[in-house]
């Protein structure tokens, strides 16, 4: 049996890589993929805790997180397509019309 701590540590590492991706990358699609990575690491922590306490509620939470992630990806990619139509670029630095 692998202790739950190991899974939580792996989850924290994957989450941190996702945060770095959101903060450092300028490609909007890669930023979205980093957000998916963060959601996924949270799911891993949920399932690890579900096993720790011997209940299934954590796995149900993962189920709901997945549906929210699917909806978020659909809307986000539609936004990216709409931005690409008007800007001809998906560089997040190009979306700066609100800059003072």
């Amino acid at each position: 049996m692998i202790p739950t701590t190991y899974y939580l540590a792996l989850s924290a590492i994957l989450f941190s890589i996702g945060v770095i991706g959101v903060l450092v990358r300028r490609n909007a699609i890669v930023i979205f993929m980093s957000i998916e990575l963060m959601l996924n690491s949270a799911n891993l922590a949920f399932v690890a805790f579900a096993r720790e306490f011997g209940t299934l509620d954590g796995q149900l939470m993962v189920f709901f997180v997945m549906t929210v992630a699917a909806a978020e990806v659909a809307v986000g990619l539609a936004l990216i397509v709409a931005i690409f139509r008007s800007k001809a670029s998906i560089d997040v630095d190009a979306v700066n019309l609100l800059k003072g």
């Binding site: 979205f32 990619l77 690409f84 670029s89 560089d91």
Partner: peptide, 19 residues
């Protein structure tokens, strides 16, 4: 989800940023 990502990347031709 990843097929959707790949589809949008290839649809836009946005593999890498131009500038």
């Amino acid at each position: 989800i990843m097929v959707l990502f790949l589809f949008v990347i290839m649809l836009l031709g946005a593999e890498r940023l131009r500038h």
